[in-house]
């Protein structure tokens, strides 16, 4: 009896991190090569999205470059964001932001909405996604406007 009770407690404790994950990250469904539904249930704001793409803390233009004349320092480690909205659908953009490794396992693009499967994450960032669901939706909304 004691043994099964303690086993039950162990099971509950083991289940806690999963519960915390469920609270932190919104659930999403991958369909084909995209995530069709917004993580927040509503479309993002492209103006806020543009500001986020340019913000250093979002890390986008550390690697990417694009039609951002006011940004002096942009990377060339990754493709241009110009025309991103013509090349990809919002669903495809969303999956690439959430977890690009699902599209290409060898990609160096970080998974912006994933907290598992990472190694030695610094304490300030542990168990937090790089971007929130709202931020991802804002960025998707902005990238979708980049057409050529």
């Amino acid at each position: 009896m004691m043994r099964s009770a303690s086993r039950l407690i162990v099971l509950i404790i083991a289940a806690l991190p999963a519960a915390a994950v469920a609270q932190t990250l919104a659930r999403y469904a991958i369909v084909g090569d995209g995530i069709p539904e917004p993580l927040t249930g509503q479309p993002g704001d492209p103006t806020r999205g543009r500001a986020l793409v340019l913000a250093r803390s979002s890390t986008c233009i550390l690697c990417h470059f694009g039609p951002f004349p006011e940004a002096r320092f942009q990377g060339d480690l990754a493709p241009s964001l110009a025309g991103a909205g013509s090349r990809s659908t919002p669903a495809q953009l969303r999956l690439r932001l959430v977890d690009a490794s699902q599209v290409n396992p060898d990609t160096i693009m970080p998974s912006y909405y994933r907290i598992d499967g990472l190694t030695r994450v610094g304490s300030a960032w542990r168990d937090k996604p790089i971007l929130s669901a709202e931020q991802i939706e804002d960025i998707v909304a902005y990238l979708a406007t980049l057409r050529e």
């Binding site: 250093r56 550390l62 990377g75 060339d76 970080p110 990472l118 190694t119 994450v121 542990r126």
Partner: peptide, 21 residues
């Protein structure tokens, strides 16, 4: 490693001729 999930080699072996910001 890290939240950005990058290895040293991803930049310094494979992309050393490019630019970060």
């Amino acid at each position: 490693q890290g939240q950005l999930n990058l290895a040293c080699a991803n930049c310094h072996d494979d992309n050393w001729d490019k630019h970060l910001a």
